[in-house]
Design a protein around this nucleic acid. Structure first.
Lengths: 203, 203
DNA sequence: GTAATTCTGCAACGGTCACTGCACAATGGA
DNA sequence: TCCATTGTGCAGTGACCGTTGCAGAATTAC
């Protein structure tokens, strides 16, 4: 039983995916409504009817990014399935590196890069992504805290988590600048030696 | 003997510093000409007479950032004055961290953050900063290559340099998100253990 | 003084921005 | 068939974008 009224003439999910890709590639403010309507294959009026306004569309696109397998879910999945804290951090970095440098997709992480600088009017958008970055950091911290026995009691969990996030953020910039998947993995090799060093230095 | 014609009615250097601060804080596209003229205390016509156009003004601001002691010179200075490759990398990270989280200045690195996403028309601006980031990476690489004997011959200098740059980039994002100086230093503690691990793993 | 040169304030330029009012189209239910 | 509801195309809204033409102001050289 569809809702009453004229049915929507386009695939809302597909249109949202097109918007996601555009926002991911060039950022929130740098993408105009007319570019969006062209990429989504709809008129401006339909965009507003379906998604409300540009900011709401962006937020929905970020949500979709976050819950799409192979994109934003990589971090969560790595943290949940890896058998140890160390393996979780490494999997998080490596799986994301593959996504960041995938030639089929925009480069780097949408959450890190798509609203780093905005005009005063759109500060709320920047804060929205900042909060999502913070939430990822919290997840990492929680995963470390749950690693009973594996990490020496004297270790600074906050510093470990911040270190992992810093490397993750840096990988996005490197990928945007054209780094290869192999190059990113070499960086992660070094980063994991940093992890081991921190654990060893404390024990 | 000043040049003929009506003399400029404002301090060009001071105006450029105001523009630098604004671009640093919010990025190239997110800052409008009217915001610039207000901050610089001049009319739009004077801005164009003195600086050419918005993009040229931005490039000059980035140059100024790069050659101002306590800002963009920190990296170069650290690489030149530190007594060892390891000390050079550590000084580069720590000195920049102090700048990135300085409460008196915009947060993070202007070169990393002020043009990460731009509209299609201004891609040249993004590429300009990308090239500057690349140049810094080259400087780091060169410093490591010059560290005769200190680094084992089997070490991957490219990976070491890319690792240092990745951490440096990540620190900018962390600072923009509000990280404290102390927090950044803890991250660098970890990062330097990564450095030591890479050296040790190879030797 | 006059000419040449440069800078500045004013008032606009065409273009694009995000967004919307309105008439009409397309559906479901009575 | 007629109504209620919702989506869509068209044509615009006012605001702001980066930029500029022009007249006049301020200086040096003569």
């Amino acid at each position: 039983m569809p809702a009453p009224g004229r049915p929507r003439g386009f695939d809302r999910d597909a249109a949202l995916r097109s918007a996601l890709r555009l926002f991911w590639e060039r950022g929130y403010e740098a993408v105009s409504i007319s570019e969006l309507t062209e990429a989504m294959g709809i008129g401006a009026r339909s965009l507003y009817t379906a998604f409300g306004c540009k900011e709401e569309l962006f937020r929905e696109a970020v949500e979709l990014y976050g819950c799409t397998p192979g994109l934003g879910t990589a971090t969560e999945r790595a943290l949940e399935t890896a058998p140890s804290a160390r393996a979780a951090i490494e999997a998080m970095l490596r799986d994301n590196a593959e996504i960041y440098a995938d030639p089929e997709s925009p480069r780097g992480c949408m959450v890190v890069l798509s609203a780093t600088n905005v005009s005063a009017d759109n500060e709320s958008v920047r804060l929205f992504l900042e909060q999502r970055r913070r939430a990822v950091g919290e997840s990492v911290r929680a995963r470390l805290a749950a690693a009973e026995g594996e990490i020496p009691a004297c270790a600074d969990l906050d510093a470990l988590a911040d270190y992992a996030m810093t490397v993750l953020f840096g990988l996005s910039v490197q990928a945007k600048d054209g780094a290869s998947v192999a190059g990113l993995h070499k960086v992660i090799d070094a980063a994991m030696l940093g992890w081991d060093g921190m654990i060893r230095a404390c024990a």
